[in-house]
Amino acid sequence: MQDRPNILIPISVLEGESIPEGVPELLANAHVVLLGYHVVPDQTATDQARHQFEDQATRRLDDFAEILEHAGAIVESQLVFTHHGQTTIDRMAAEHDCLAVLIPNATRPIETVLVAVRGIVGIDRFIRLVSGLFATNDVNVTLYHVPEENETDEDVKTLLDGISTRLSQEGVSPDMIDIQISRGDDPQAAIVDAADNYDAIVMGESDPSVATFLFGMTADQVAKQFLGPVFVIQHGEPDDDEETDTE
């Protein structure tokens, strides 16, 4: 039995966000940290917002947790009222040792996953996430890489073959693992183009801050163009910005 990977799902709980169709089944083998957060205007105290909205937010968060648990996930919920949504997501991902943050777009039943590998950074997290979620399922995993100018196809194949071997050792069937190399000047565009034939994407963050990736141009463009769920592997440590969340 694979260890359940810790996955953070941030939900702006009072802004109409919810758990989209297909996401509960996608996370059936995960330990989900369900972060319900509400960004409070600077001029409003977080304690005041909690007093006003806590009951409503808690009911919604409990409903989402029940949906995820019914699909098989283990769920840990936390409600936060904050002035700094991005910092809160980073901090929670670090505190709960989450392998990835999920941008939870709707999906059909998962049959194919594109794993966009940028290099050797974070490979252990990629392997733990992919094997933990998909080793016991009939899911085709494509290891995908857009080489840098100084990378040869042989170098890339060596890298991807090594990851494939490690995934096999963690229980992913070798028959379900493919390798794809694509050269181009715009890795983001290449990933989006390649993802057309896949149900979900696993990719590394391009910035030390998961939240910057989640709310910034790169993640926003990938998630909007792809439309399916995107797992953003966390590599960096969160900033030490002061925060006065109420939890």
Rank of each mutant, 00 (worst) to 15 (best):
M1S: 06
M1G: 02
Q2V: 05
E15A: 15
P20E: 12
E21I: 06
E21C: 03
A28N: 11
H38L: 07
P41D: 05
A45H: 12
Q48A: 15
Q48F: 13
A49N: 09
Q52L: 13
D55E: 07
A57K: 00
R60V: 12
L61K: 00
L61Y: 00
D62A: 09
F64M: 11
H70E: 13
H70Q: 11
V75P: 06
V75N: 12
Q86S: 11
T87G: 12
D90P: 02
R91A: 04
D97C: 04
A100I: 02
A100P: 00
A100W: 02
A100Y: 00
V101H: 05
L102D: 15
P104C: 10
A106W: 02
T107W: 14
T107I: 11
T112W: 15
T112H: 12
L114H: 07
G119D: 09
G119H: 08
I127Y: 07
T136W: 04
V139Y: 01
V139E: 03
T142K: 09
E151M: 10
E151I: 07
T152C: 01
V156R: 01
K157V: 04
K157R: 07
K157S: 06
T158V: 09
T158F: 09
D161S: 10
G162C: 08
S164Q: 11
T165G: 08
R166A: 14
S168H: 11
Q169V: 12
V172F: 14
Q180N: 03
Q188D: 10
Q188E: 11
A194Y: 09
A195N: 05
N197Q: 09
Y198K: 03
S206L: 10
P208V: 06
V210F: 04
T212H: 10
F213A: 03
F215K: 03
T218K: 01
Q225M: 07
Q225I: 00
F226V: 01
L227T: 12
G228W: 02
V232I: 14
V232L: 13
H235V: 05
P238H: 12
D239V: 06
D240K: 07
